[in-house]
Write a protein that binds this DNA or RNA. Structure first.
Lengths: 357, 357
DNA sequence: ATCGGGCGCTAACCCGATTTAGCAACGAGT
DNA sequence: ACTCGTTGCTAAATCGGGTTAGCGCCCGAT
C-alpha cells in the first residue's frame, strides 16, 4: 500500500500553528498578512522536514484551477510528424508548472465530445485542439466551457478562437525562391497538387496555401509553373506514380513536391528513369520529415515547425486563460509560425543559369 | 467567462431532495439504501435535464482516485516509432474512463523526479514508465508512491515492478527463420550488432536479445552467421557505412539488419555496389517502421507491437492498482508481447536452395 | 399505551487545501 | 480609564462531492 501523504494539517500541527497560518506562510502571503519571522521560519522548516507537498487536487477544488491543460487531437499523438508539437506543448506547460492531458478523437465527433467532457470533468484550465494536418475543423460547442486554442487548424465556422498555424503561404514562396535562387526558370513542375488552386487533396489547407505562395513567388519573378500532377493522398506510392506519369511525357528541370513522402516517391521515379538528383532534376519539398535527411542526396525542404507550433499554442492558450479570468471576450486571432528552409543536397544550380545574383 | 457548472447541490435542490439522496441515487446506491422509486426517478430526471456531470476533482479529493494515469517516458511521446504505444495506452485508459497525463524526462533524472512529483501531486492512480528503446532503466525511488509498471524497459536493480516488453528473442528467431525458410544457409550477415553478444550498442537490450534469438534459430538449423558489422547508432548513415564496409570484402547472400533504418542504409549501399534486393541479397529487418513499406522493394521486417505494448501496459497497471488496493505486494512479473513478421518483398528464395521442406 | 422494527430520507462530517472575517493582546494617545 | 490602531494569529466557511450515523414516521405486536 502507498503511504499516506503529508497534509497541510500535519505541518500545522507539527509546527504548532493553525492550518490557516501554515497555508499563508507556504503560499508566500505570510509577510503580507503579518505572520512573524519566527513562525514563518518554523513553518517552512517543518514543511521541509516533513517533505510536505500541497495536494493539487484539493487546491484545485478550492481555486477552480487544476494546473492542467488538455491536448486533444484527431490522431496527432501517434504521428511522428507531429509528435514534436506535443513536445513543444509539454515544455511550454512544464515551464508554468502545468501538466498535459492527452486525448485522441480519431476524427470521431462523439469520441471528441466524450473526451472534452472527461477533460472538463477534471477541470482543465484550457484546451488545445490540434489537427494532424493543416485544415479547417468543426469546433464542438462544448469548447466554450473553457479557454481554448486551435493548433494546426482553422475553425470551419467563424469562432472567437485563436488559431496557431504554420505560415504555409510564405513556405510556398520560400520553396519557389530556393529554385529561383538556383537559377531555375523553366521546367519547374509540381508534384502533389496544382497547378490550379482547386487541384488539391480534400480539406488540405496546407496544399492551397503552399500553392498560393509558390505561384506568387514564381509570378513575381515572371516564371510560370510548367505543369503539375496531383496526388489523392500525400504518400510515397502516389508520389512515385505521379512522377512516373510526368516523366513519361516531359523531362522536368526541377520539382516542387508538396511533402517529403511524395518527394521520396519522386526520387524513386527519377531513379527508374535514370535521372540524377540534383544534376538532372532539382527537388525542393515541404515538412522536413526524418526521411528528408535519410534519402540520398539529402532533401532540401521547408520545415514544419512542429515544436514551435506546440509551444506557441501553449503560450497563446495562457494569454487566453488570462483573458478569460478578466472576463474579456476573445477575438480569434490567427498566429502564423514561420517555416524555415533546410538547405541540403537536392537542389543544384540550373545548367541554363545565367548570372548568379 | 466560462459558465458555472451544475453541481450536485443544484440537482438536489431542483429535485427537492437532500444532497445525500441525490448522491446516493446518482452513484447507483439508491436501491441498496432504500430510496423510493419515485424519488429516484425524480433525481435522475432532474440530473438529466440540468445536464449534471459530477466533478471528478471533487470526487477524487474524497475517494483518493483521480481516474487518471501518468505516462512518463524519456522521449517516447515525440518519436513516431513509439507513438503507437501512447495510442494503445490511451485507448486502454479510455475504455476504463481514465485519462492520461503525459510527461517527458529527456533522460534527465531531476526532470523525472519533478515530473513524478507533479503527477503524484495530482493524485494519479498509477504510472507507466516508458522507454523509447528497449533497455534497462534506473527506477526512481519515489515510484513507490503509486502503482507503476515499466514499458519497454527492465529495472536496472531488482524491483517489484511489472515490466512489459516486446519478445525480442523470439523476434530474432523469427527473423532468422524467414531466411532459413527461404533456403538461405550461407552468406548470412548481420548489420547493426554481433556477431558476439557483447558487440552491441550501449544499453540496448533489444540488440542483445535479437542476437540471441538469431543465433539460436540459426544454430538449431546448423547454420553459422557468416559475419557481422556493428553500428554505434542504429541510423541509416551508419547502416550505409557498415554495409559498404562489408561489401568491400565479401558478397553476402542475405542480411539481417537490426532495424529498418539500418536496412534503409543497407539498401543504399547495395545499390551503390549494383546489387539487387532481393535477387542478389535478401534482407530481413526489425521494427516495421513506416519506412519499411516506403522503400522498394518493400522490406520484410519483424514488427515492434507498439500499440499492443501500450495497451498491455495499461492492462497490467490496472491489475497492479487492484493489487495495491488489496494491500498485496507486487512481484515484478515480466510480460512479453509477440513481435509479428511482416512478410513483404525483400526476401527471395536462395538460388542455392535445395529441398524446401 | 408502549415497544420494536422496517422504511425513507437527511444532518453532519470528511477529503485537503484557500480565504474571509475577526479575535486577543498590547501600546499609544487623550 | 477609555478609545483606537496595530500586530499576530486563528476560527470557520468554502469548493463539490462521498459516507456514516441516525432521525421521524408508520405499522404491528404486546
Amino acid at each position: 500500500m502507498s503511504p499516506r501523504r503529508v497534509t497541510l494539517a500535519d505541518v500545522a500541527k507539527a509546527a504548532g500553528v493553525s492550518r490557516t497560518t501554515a497555508s499563508l506562510v507556504l503560499s508566500g502571503r505570510g509577510r503580507e498578512l503579518r505572520i512573524s519571522q519566527d513562525v514563518e521560519q518554523r513553518v517552512l522548516k517543518t514543511a521541509e522536514e516533513l517533505q510536505y507537498r500541497p495536494n493539487i487536487v484539493s487546491r484545485g477544488l478550492r481555486t477552480g484551477s487544476s494546473r492542467t491543460i488538455g491536448f486533444v487531437s484527431d490522431t496527432v499523438a501517434t504521428s511522428r510528424l507531429a509528435g514534436d508539437m506535443i513536445k513543444g506543448a509539454l515544455e511550454g506547460a512544464r515551464d508554468r508548472g502545468f501538466m498535459l492531458f492527452i486525448g485522441e478523437t480519431e476524427g470521431d465527433a462523439e469520441l471528441e465530445r466524450l473526451l472534452l467532457q472527461a477533460m472538463h470533468d477534471r477541470q482543465v484550465d484550457g484546451l488545445i485542439l490540434a489537427s494532424m494536418f493543416t485544415r479547417t475543423i468543426k469546433v464542438p460547442k462544448t469548447i466554450t466551457a473553457a479557454p481554448a486554442v486551435l493548433l494546426n487548424a482553422l475553425p470551419k465556422q467563424p469562432a472567437p478562437l485563436p488559431a496557431i498555424l504554420p505560415d504555409e503561404v510564405e513556405a510556398g514562396r520560400r520553396a519557389a525562391r530556393v529554385l529561383l535562387d538556383a537559377g531555375h526558370r523553366d521546367g519547374i513542375y509540381l508534384i502533389g497538387a496544382g497547378p490550379r488552386l482547386r487541384d488539391v487533396p480534400t480539406e488540405s489547407l496546407a496544399a492551397v496555401e503552399r500553392l498560393i505562395g509558390i505561384r506568387e513567388a514564381l509570378g513575381e519573378a515572371g516564371v510560370q509553373v510548367a505543369g503539375a500532377r496531383t496526388c489523392p493522398d500525400w504518400q510515397p506510392d502516389y508520389g512515385l506514380e505521379a512522377t512516373r506519369d510526368l516523366l513519361r511525357t516531359v523531362q522536368p528541370r526541377a520539382l516542387i513536391c508538396f511533402n517529403d513522402r511524395i518527394a521520396m516517391g519522386a526520387y524513386q521515379a527519377l531513379d527508374d528513369f535514370g535521372l540524377k538528383v540534383p544534376a538532372d532534376v532539382s527537388i525542393v519539398s515541404f515538412d522536413d520529415h526524418p526521411i528528408a535527411s535519410w534519402v540520398r542526396p539529402q532533401l532540401t525542404t521547408v520545415a514544419l515547425p512542429h515544436y514551435e507550433l506546440g509551444r506557441k499554442a501553449v503560450d497563446v492558450l495562457f494569454t487566453e486563460i488570462e483573458r478569460d479570468r478578466s472576463a474579456a471576450g476573445g477575438v480569434g486571432e490567427v498566429h502564423r509560425v514561420p517555416m524555415p528552409v533546410r538547405h541540403r543536397e537536392s537542389v543544384a544550380p540550373s545548367s541554363a543559369a545565367g548570372s548568379s545574383g
